[in-house]
């Protein structure tokens, strides 16, 4: 059902992705704010974006988006446009946790490696590499990267972005801020998913939004 409708291939499918800040309140309550969030929505056909339109927004040397796309498979490449929500109701105090949670599923038992590269003006500034083992649940193999701590670079970036007085200034900074996530099968080095993220600030009062596109070469 989900093929062609969201981020995934026959081998791996993204179920959830969220970046958040969270504060533990009194009586063990948690106050969580989502900066960005992808969840399973109702399936709709994806529009396409020519991958060459965004090459320069991501690393271009060996192992960059162009290289990766040429190696393929092309069906594993996606672009996500996020409208991020920076209207945090959570006070930014010591003890606030900044994290990222992502969840994948697939039909095979694999060990996956997930690389997340934060890029500024198309150049990688920081990379996180995580390895995740499969857990068999309800006939599918699940891969959960739960509450992975956000790197200092991103936390500082969010702080600085929030200090800008106008949304258009934030969007101007975000024009040159991107994240590239590459998920591979650790044992075979097969590319399973490649997701390019670009950002704008949400103008909605009701939180973060997104569009997903297929990356193609037309």
């Amino acid at each position: 059902v989900w093929q062609g409708c969201s981020i995934g291939t026959a081998k791996l499918h993204l179920l959830e992705f969220s970046a958040f800040m969270e504060q533990q309140g009194e009586t063990n309550t948690y106050n969580r704010h989502l900066f960005v969030h992808i969840s399973q929505g109702s399936p709709t056909a994806l529009e396409s974006v020519d991958v060459r339109q965004i090459y320069d927004k991501f690393p271009e040397k060996k192992g960059g988006l162009k290289d990766l796309y040429e190696r393929g498979p092309p069906g594993a490449f996606f672009l996500v446009k996020f409208w991020a929500d920076l209207n945090t109701g959570v006070p930014d105090e010591p003890g606030v946790f900044y994290g990222v949670t992502s969840q994948y599923e697939g039909p095979e038992n694999m060990t996956i490696t997930c690389s997340s590269k934060v890029c500024s003006f198309g150049k990688q500034v920081v990379e996180k590499v995580e390895t995740e083992y499969a857990r068999f649940e309800n006939g599918r193999f699940m891969y959960r990267m739960h509450r992975s701590p956000m790197c200092e670079y991103l936390i500082n970036f969010i702080h600085k972005l929030k200090q800008l007085p106008e949304k258009y200034m934030m969007n101007s900074v975000l024009e040159n801020f991107t994240i590239l996530q590459v998920v591979t099968n650790r044992d075979t080095q097969e590319l399973l998913l490649c997701v390019a993220y670009v950002f704008e600030i949400s103008t909605s009062e009701r939180g973060t939004q997104y569009h997903i596109y297929r990356l193609v070469k037309e």
């Binding site: 929505g41 529009e47 396409s48 974006v49 020519d50 060459r52 339109q53 965004i54 090459y55 320069d56 446009k81 409208w83 024009e175 670009v198 704008e200 949400s202 103008t203 909605s204 009701r206 939180g207 939004q209 997104y210 569009h211 596109y213």
Partner: peptide
């Protein structure tokens, strides 16, 4: 082949790329 620092607004992107979805 590549746009090379052309502002995103001037690139060949779907109209939806600039339209924030309405909250459900």
């Amino acid at each position: 082949e590549r746009p090379d620092q052309v502002p995103m607004r001037k690139r060949q992107l779907p109209a939806s790329f600039w339209e924030e979805p309405r909250p459900v």
